[in-house]
């Protein structure tokens, strides 16, 4: 029996990395348009359908608690832009800075410094720098504003920044630096309300867009399960969740897409390991699983 939640780079039901279709386009099929993420993605498509944003630059903020799929959404937006920029003769280059190792304890200045060092490396290896002086820039404050002039004119830079964590002032700083033909994609789990995030970027001269992600709604559970289940059409043994089970789970507490994925994966993994042939997965199965193994949050 397969686990319907099995996706690449998954460990104990949790993704090691967010889905990144920029790097691996085949991952696009794993995206499930549950309510909020679809709305957020569609908003991005609307906001940037018109390529005139290129004249001002852009800052995009994904706001929402942990495990709501913010980073995956930003990658998805970046990938969409590579295909739908709408500016003939221009091509999108995505630079992913989320790998920069940052801790929340690091100060904003030091964090931005790290990002700057990483960006310079990426720009250099992409071979798109036309003004070498750019590589001498010592902080994002001097680097980012010069990007449009120092990089090949037919390149549009889309830079995915690391999460700003609770240091949301960092987002405002970045928003003040964006030049033409550059889009900064950033995120924070510390702002749930998109209006709070809008305040951070409203004074920027760049085009700004705030994408809010939130909790699952009752019906999202079945939608998510069935879309993933379809990826494994050949395995007939997989028992489906009983009617209303996932909805009940979702409504019992604040549940995110990450929570749900982990829960379903763990329950199916348990069934598989116990070799339990059940006709369907009920709420009792899930409760039983948690009572057995979830003491203290440890398996």
């Amino acid at each position: 029996m397969i686990n319907p939640m099995d996706i690449p780079a998954l460990r104990s039901g949790m993704a090691k990395q967010p889905l990144n279709p920029v790097e691996k386009p085949e991952l696009m099929e794993l995206f499930v348009d549950i309510d909020e993420s679809r709305a957020a993605f569609e908003q991005f498509q609307r906001d940037f359908a018109d390529p005139r944003w290129l004249d001002h630059g852009a800052i995009v903020v994904a706001a929402g608690r942990e495990q709501t799929g913010k980073t995956a959404l930003l990658y998805r937006c970046a990938r969409w832009l590579t295909q739908h920029l709408g500016a003939p003769g221009q091509q999108v280059k995505v630079l992913d800075c989320t790998r920069v190792e940052l801790t929340a304890v690091t100060s904003i200045d030091a964090r931005m410094q790290e990002v700057c060092t990483y960006l310079k490396d990426e720009l250099f290896s992409a071979g798109i720098v036309i003004d070498e002086r750019l590589l001498a820039a010592e902080s994002p404050r001097s680097l980012i504003p010069r990007l449009s002039k120092a990089v090949t004119p037919d390149v549009v830079l889309v830079i995915v920044l690391p999460s700003s964590d609770d240091l949301v002032a960092e987002i405002t700083t970045y928003a003040g630096l964006v030049p033409k033909r550059v889009m900064l994609l950033t995120e924070t789990p510390y702002l749930e309300n998109p209006d709070d995030a809008r305040v951070l970027v409203e004074r920027s001269r760049a085009v700004s867009s705030v994408l809010g992600l939130g909790l699952l709604k009752g019906a999202d559970g079945d939608l998510f399960y069935h879309k993933r289940r379809l990826l494994h059409p050949d395995d007939a043994d997989v028992p489906a969740p009983a009617d209303g089970t996932l909805e009940r789970i979702i409504k019992a507490r604040d549940t995110t897409i990450g929570d749900l994925q982990k829960l379903i994966w763990e329950v199916y993994d348990d069934l598989r390991r116990r070799n339990d042939a059940v006709p369907e997965v009920t709420y009792d199965h899930i409760t039983d699983y948690y009572f057995r193994v979830a003491h203290g949050g440890r398996k």
Binding site: Q67, E192, H295, G296
Partner: peptide, 18 residues
Amino acid sequence: AESDPKELVRENRWAESI
């Protein structure tokens, strides 16, 4: 007080921010 909320939240990747 038998389990540490900090650890529990981290292991489950629950919403620490919230």
